[in-house]
Design a protein around this nucleic acid. Structure first.
Lengths: 184, 184
DNA sequence: TCAGAAACGTCAACATGGCTGACATAAATT
DNA sequence: AATTTATGTCAGCCATGTTGACGTTTCTGA
C-alpha cells in the first residue's frame, strides 16, 4: 500500500529529454489509447483459450493450427505456412502432435498426390468449437455495448487494420465476404 | 499453382464428425469472423513494431516494457509485473538490458526506498515514439474507414473486451478517462 | 525495538515455440 | 531424364515464458 507514486514523475532523473528530440516535423498525434486497448483486449481475448488449452497439454501454436484447419478444411501444409507465417519446422512440431493425438487427419491430394490436405477430426472440431465458444462469449458481451451498427464499424475497422498486399488464401476468403452480416 | 483444393472438402476422410457432437444445447452462433479478424489485425499491428525492433536487437518483450515505462513514468517494478503479467525473472532479463543500454533509468522511491521507480530516458522515449508512430499510421488508416463516431464505437468495443476484475494501475488509468475523445 | 513482511535482484534449470541449415523422398513438370 | 515442388525431418540456436530457491535492503506492526 502506502504511497502510489504512479505517474507522478518526481524530481526528473536528469537524463530525460529536455527538448522534443529534433524532428518536430512529424507532429501527428499518436494513438496511445487504441494502442493500449488493443494490447489489453488481445491479451484477454487469447487468455480465454490459453487457460483451456492447458488442460489438453496444448499451447497457442496448437490452437492456431487447429483453428484454421477446422475452419478451412482441406488446407494444404503450404497454405497453413502462409497463414501462420511460421516455418515448416515450427509447424511440423505441433502438427505432428495434433496428428498423433487424433485431432487432425491428412489426406493425399486428388490432383497432386504430393500434397497433404488437412482436416480436423470430430475430436479436433470439438476442441476448436469449445475454444471459440469462450472467445465468442467475450465478443458478444463487447458487441452488445456498441449495437448492430457498431458491430459493423468494428468489423470494418479490424479489416482495415490488416495488410492487403499479397494476401494468403484464408485472407482472400475473409475479404471476399461482405462486411455487413447485419442480422443481430 | 495447379489446383486450389481449398475449402473443397473432398471425399470425407471418414474420421470426421457425422453428428454435431452431442450437446446441441449451447447453440450460440460462434463469432468466427471477429475471431479471425482479431488474429490478423493484431498480427499486422504488432508486425509494424517487430520489424523496427530488429534493428535495435530488441524483441516484443522489450517493446512492451519500454512502452509502459514511457507512458506511465515512475512505474514501479511490481506495477510492471502486474501489467505485463509475467514473472519477475522474465521481466528482469529484459529490464536489465534496457537499463544497461540506457533506455530506462531507475530512481529510488521517495516514500519507500525499497521501490525502484522506472523512467524512460530521451533515447527510450524516442524509440517508443518511433514504434507508436508506425502503429498510429495503421490505426489512422483504419479509423478513417469508420469515421469519428465509428472510432468511438471501436474504443467502446475494445474496452468491453478487457477484463475488469482486479485491474492493475494502468488499466485503472485507462478506464478512468472517458471513451469519447471525439475531436476528429 | 525487533521480528517478519515486502520490494527487489539473481542464480539455475526447464518448456514452448520461433528460427536457420541441411538433407531425403515422392511426385509433378519440363 | 533432369529438375522442381511439396513435404518431412534431424540438429541446434535463440527469445521469452516458467518454477524454485535464496539474499539484501527497507518498511511495518506487535
Amino acid at each position: 500500500m502506502a504511497d502510489i507514486n504512479f505517474s507522478t514523475r518526481p524530481d526528473s532523473p536528469d537524463s530525460r529529454a529536455p527538448e522534443p528530440q529534433a524532428a518536430a516535423a512529424d507532429e501527428r498525434p499518436l494513438r496511445w489509447d487504441i494502442i493500449e486497448l488493443l494490447f489489453f483486449a488481445y491479451r484477454d481475448f487469447v487468455g480465454d483459450a490459453d487457460h483451456e488449452l492447458e488442460a489438453f497439454g496444448f499451447g497457442r501454436a496448437h490452437h492456431r493450427v487447429m483453428h484454421f484447419v477446422t475452419r478451412y478444411p482441406g488446407l494444404k501444409v503450404a497454405d497453413l505456412l502462409e497463414v501462420l507465417r511460421i516455418t515448416k519446422q515450427s509447424l511440423g512440431r505441433v502438427l505432428k502432435q495434433l496428428l498423433d493425438e487424433g485431432y487432425i487427419v491428412q489426406k493425399t491430394g486428388n490432383n497432386d498426390r504430393r500434397q497433404r490436405l488437412l482436416f480436423a477430426t470430430a475430436k479436433g472440431e470439438a476442441l476448436v468449437a469449445k475454444l471459440a465458444g469462450l472467445q465468442t462469449r467475450r465478443i458478444d458481451r463487447a458487441l452488445e455495448q456498441v449495437g448492430p451498427a457498431g458491430a459493423d464499424k468494428v468489423r470494418q475497422f479490424l479489416r482495415a487494420m490488416i495488410d492487403r498486399d499479397d494476401p494468403d488464401k484464408v485472407l482472400e476468403a475473409i475479404f471476399k465476404t461482405p462486411v455487413t452480416t447485419a442480422k443481430e
